[in-house]
Amino acid sequence: MEELIHSGIARYEYRHFIIFGSASQFAAMATECAGDQGAWWEFHDAYLIDARARSFTRAGALELARDEGLDVAQFTQCIDNEEHRDRILQMQQQAIADGARGTPTFLINGRMAARSLDGIIEQVHDAAEAVENQEGG
């Protein structure tokens, strides 16, 4: 997947689809608040692998924010005020409109993708080839 992105064939877009309740909601909000300070992907990665983040607590998120060198006061205000609630809700509505019924869900150029990684890669290459053919023809 990384190779497809590095090579410029594909761009990858992550969208929140909250289906597991308040912990998911909090993680999404914390990530968006980190995004205000340019650390969206750092928090994204942390919520996948970092134990502090995966405690899904306010304390864990603040510790992570400090480690990333963020303005903790601004970050705290952002998560306490739920400043990105509407943004996340919009994504939620878009997910349903796109036909997502659970996670993970992949769409490739707007079309529902296969569930397996190999299938996704194959579909990406097919989509890229189709675009090239359109541009060439």
Partner: peptide, 23 residues
């Protein structure tokens, strides 16, 4: 290249959209 939610070049021909939940 990265921006909020997006990795990769904006003019890449293929968009992979992922709907996920951190938990």
């Amino acid at each position: 290249r990265s921006e909020r939610h997006v990795l990769g070049e904006p003019d890449a021909p293929v968009e992979i959209r992922y709907y996920g939940d951190f938990t």
